[in-house]
């Protein structure tokens, strides 16, 4: 599978995404520079974390206007798998490919530490290797990850099972104390209506190798590559 990683000025998790995509796919992933419109024939896209354009306006607000995002939108609308991690999730929300917004963390600034996530939807290309309700330990590293959506949107997300990941205790309970940033309904990640576009604040690529303390996040990338293998 050929995976592309979109690179904006200020992306700083692009190398990490390329590294893990290569491990999962068994062949080099491709950096896609923001000024180019071509996706170079990639079959899946990752929008990595970082501080695109310095985040000086609103996280992700400028990135959505870049040439590559036109192509990402067309790719997503055609059903192509797109994963936004951290700043990438923020960009997908700003671009309207996902709903809701990510506000400043409640009661804290930037926070980087491991959290526990429960997989509530295992029917996306990035999660179908998980059991529903499976818990994984994955780090967060963000200052603006407090998920917010209007009540109607929130209701729709819940009704259509479009909440993919939730912050939970290490036993899998959805408790306020397991919520690191004030996100509504402990939401850590969501998907679009078709399930092909997924965004999450935590960093599964940082928990994808045993040497780094956890490889529980690797299933996200494995799922993607296996989906492709079965459909191809």
């Amino acid at each position: 599978m050929k995976i592309g990683v979109v690179v904006f000025p200020g992306s700083n998790c692009d190398h990490d995404a390329l590294h893990i995509a290569q491990l999962a796919a068994g062949k080099p992933a491709v950096p896609l520079w923001h000024e180019n419109a071509s996706l170079e024939g990639c079959q899946a896209l990752i929008i990595p974390g970082g501080f695109s354009y310095g985040d000086y306006l609103r996280t992700g607000a400028i990135a959505r206007f870049s040439p590559i995002m036109q192509s990402v939108r067309a790719f997503a609308e055609g059903g192509g798998p797109v994963l936004g991690i951290c700043n990438g999730f923020q960009i997908l929300c700003e671009a309207g490919l996902l709903e809701g917004a990510l506000l400043r963390n409640a009661g804290t600034g930037f926070v980087c530490r491991p959290v526990y996530l429960r997989v509530d939807n295992n029917r996306t290309p990035f999660t179908h290797g998980f059991e529903r309700g499976e818990v994984m330990r994955v780090p967060i590293a963000h200052g603006e990850g407090n998920f917010y959506a209007d009540p109607e949107v929130l209701e729709e997300l819940e009704e259509k099972h479009r909440v993919v990941f939730r912050y939970c205790t290490h036993g899998g309970a959805i408790e306020p104390e397991a919520n690191p940033n004030g996100s509504l309904h402990n939401i850590a990640g969501i998907c679009n209506d078709h399930g092909n576009v997924v965004g999450l604040m935590p960093h599964p690529e940082r928990a994808s190798e045993a040497a780094l303390g956890s490889n529980e996040g690797f299933k996200v990338f494995e799922s993607l590559c296996r989906t492709y293998a079965t459909h191809a």
Binding site: C13, D16, G109, C112, A141, S208, L212
Partner: peptide
């Protein structure tokens, strides 16, 4: 000192052992 270092990104570039 978790109150200090948890405000820093300690893992970016996935090299932190």
């Amino acid at each position: 000192k978790a109150w200090v270092y948890e405000s820093y990104d300690t893992m970016v570039r996935t090299n932190t052992l």
